[in-house]
Amino acid sequence: MQVRVLVRLKPGVLDPQGRAVHHALEGMGFEGVNDVRIGRLIELGVADGTDHAAITAMCEKLLANTVIESFTIETDGSAG
């Protein structure tokens, strides 16, 4: 079973990388970009039937730092 974990910086946490990319896009002439935030996609191949709680625990304990990041878990097309 494939699981996708999307890790994002929480709102309000400065993202210098996103800001630099935003400036680069503007410098290239792309208009109308209001904000750029950079996150991380983690793809997990896990045993079929691995429960959501176990994946949540992986996220809370290692994959995301919940002081600064939030995460969403997508399993077989479902988000949660």
Partner: peptide
Amino acid sequence: LTEARLLPGALLRNAGQ
């Protein structure tokens, strides 16, 4: 120490990159 939660907060990329 912050990642181990022995201290609060986190250390982000330097603001100036």
